[in-house]
Design a protein around this nucleic acid. Structure first.
Lengths: 111, 111
DNA sequence: ATCTTATATCGCAAATATACGATGAATGTG
DNA sequence: CACATTCATCGTATATTTGCGATATAAGAT
């Protein structure tokens, strides 16, 4: 963006947006789905499951980790990832909070 | 992305990612928040509330509309927007579905 | 020590996203 | 009709994302 306008929004708005951004790519959704199914940590098996190069998968994992959606432990030459529960619940709550009013006023829709 | 890799993922993965992408900017979060508070439709008031130019706000609205998160009605020279309930509930459901397993297996975390 | 395996990181190319001013279209006002 | 108002769209500059191959790192195997 031509000149960091993002910083002019509230912290909560930025946090929610960052959370959403972390999930804004099908590869990262797929990764989260796998980590959800087997809640044991996975490593390079993800590379075999996704139609992407190893370096690309690694990059997506890094983004998910930076956003706090997953935890990673580098275990010797292998790496082990799993979902970060607390972050997920926190954002899920804020998300619902943002739209909780809406569900009540639903009928008054104007367009 | 260098060559539409996104299309190699499932439709559901792409849908969820698109939904997340629509929310991946603080301005769009802010817009949704305003539309949530007043569930009556808003038009250019958004421009006054956001630290962005009119054309930029219009662009964000367009993206939200394309993603199906909001509805818009062009009412003479003014435009009127409000949340698209059904889309929101649908995606909220899929979102929870994706992670429902996790909440149960929480204790078995490995890292 | 050398080689293999599993990952992360770097550097680059291509595609997208973000932002804005300028312009266009639609409608209402004097 | 001329003009102001409200909003969408176009063109453009810049920044970010996505993806890959090549390379670096770390640990175990031979």
């Amino acid at each position: 963006m031509a000149f960091h306008k993002k910083e002019e929004f509230t912290q909560k708005e930025q946090d929610l947006a960052n959370f959403a951004k972390a999930m804004s790519h099908p590869a990262r959704i797929a990764i989260l789905k796998v980590l959800a199914q087997r809640n044991e940590c996975i490593c390079g098996e993800l590379v075999d499951m996704l139609p992407l190069a190893q370096s690309t998968v690694s990059q997506h994992l890094k983004e998910l980790k930076n956003a706090g959606l997953i935890n990673g432990e580098t275990d010797g030459p292998r790496s082990c990832y799993c979902i970060n529960w607390k972050a997920f619940e926190k954002f899920n709550n804020e998300f619902n909070l943002l739209f909780s009013n809406l569900k009540i006023k639903n009928e008054k829709a104007c367009c």
